[in-house]
Design a protein around this nucleic acid. Structure first.
Ligand SMILES: [Mn+2]
Ligand SMILES: [Mn+2]
Ligand SMILES: [Mn+2]
Ligand SMILES: [Mn+2]
Lengths: 225, 225
DNA sequence: ATCAATTTTTAGCCTTGCCTAAAAATAGTG
DNA sequence: CACTATTTTTAGGCAAGGCTAAAAATTGAT
């Protein structure tokens, strides 16, 4: 068992690695809310434990064992999120913060029990994949809603879960994973996007639309109106 | 919010206070598994925070605020124990260790949700009272099973939950809270006790019988056979 | 009442994980 | 290619919560 701090660093490195190629001291520092100097000293410790490789001034990479731990923590986090939502009715904008604490105290036994109660799920309430016990992650191919053109349609794949306000905002218009949507119009200059959800139309700011991801995109690219 | 360490100290002091009158440095040290010197320095800190009163070489006492926190932690612990048993099917000999970790990360919101799902329960899986949100504890009057005489009957009120082996042992003969039992015979010199549970008779060692508590005791005191 | 055993406290040290300020390395720009 | 801005690392500290060993206070037994 590693400390809560180590688990958080590894998880953070994994998450940055997934979208930035290079994992820098500063990026970890920002995402984790600690000083860069603190990151450097933790990187030294993680290197000694062979959980990452670190070349001075070059960024870090997870080793096999390091990645395994990161995925275990993420599995815990997402299973707990889904469990809280399903079994205890916690709204989807609140599950993240709770899971942030629970992920570190969940035993393997309880992990299995939750997994079973939930029917061996593969997605958390925000659409993110739940890594399997052996560390397999099935990423869904998706693009930000903001990139869709009028006339195109698709299915909500995932919504970023780090801002509760965003989740409440897009939740109000029913933009949950698996929901079918169609883009009706897109205003120029990063203007608002009109979409159809469940036969109702909604207007969505372009910034929010950057954090909503769509899969199974269909339809020809209409011109921006 | 106090640290996990402080919460554990306060809970421990409360538990010792309930059965020993005097809460000594050594008793805390033993129950918590830390050195006596560590207890002394924590007592100093808790005194400064007005959570306990401490007279050098005399023992400690919880203040009002200190007791309130202790009861909150105990409420969390017992609610979680019951939740794990009911909702996730965790055996009663395993819930304690899990709850020991969860009690510190349970938000008030989740506490309320669990409470509701469980139907506002008053007893944990081992029969211990779950303090109400305002800090009321309804202790059940009970005596150790080992003190019953042949011919006497009663209802299992509570079983000590700190030894998983004991719980498995008495669980095998059905000695769960609310179960009706009758003492058939008691061997002298701290010998085994024969009891009837659900029309089956079982033999129970006297040491185990010290940790099983019985309420609603009826029947005249027969002589020890 | 005295002295020995026990309990409690003090003193000093350690590890973890964080911080700030200063130094060193790297990257970008004319 | 030099020089500045940025990034990263080093150096030195701090608080929390442990530990051991030694000193002090209390208790108990003759
Ligand atoms: Mn976390
Ligand atoms: Mn999520
Ligand atoms: Mn605990
Ligand atoms: Mn219990």
């Amino acid at each position: 068992m590693y400390t809560e701090s180590i688990e958080n660093y590894l998880k953070t490195i994994y998450e940055i690695q997934k979208e930035s190629e290079k994992v820098t001291t500063n990026s970890i520092s920002e995402k984790l809310g600690v000083a860069p100097a603190s990151v450097t000293s933790m990187m030294k410790k993680l290197s000694e434990k062979k959980l990452i490789t670190h070349k001075r001034y070059q960024g870090v990479k997870l080793t096999g064992p390091g990645k395994k731990i990161a995925l275990e923590v993420i599995r815990h986090h997402r299973l707990v999120e889904l469990y809280l939502a399903e079994a205890l009715g916690v709204p989807w904008d609140q599950v993240h913060d709770e899971a942030e604490k629970w992920e570190h105290v969940l035993s393997e036994d309880l992990e299995d029990r939750m997994d079973k109660v939930l029917g061996y799920p593969t997605r958390d309430p925000h659409g993110s994949p739940i890594p399997s016990r052996d560390g397999t992650v099935i990423e869904l191919e998706s693009i930000p809603l903001v990139e869709l053109q009028p006339g195109q349609s698709g299915v909500i794949a995932e919504v970023s879960d780090h801002d509760p306000d965003l989740l409440r905002y897009v939740g109000k218009m029913g933009l949950y994973p698996m929901t079918k949507i169609e883009v009706l119009s897109v205003e120029p200059f990063s203007g608002p996007i009109t979409i159809k959800v469940e036969d109702a139309s909604h207007i969505l700011g372009s910034e929010a639309a950057q954090y909503v991801f769509v899969s199974d995109v269909e339809g020809e690219r209409g011109e921006a109106s």
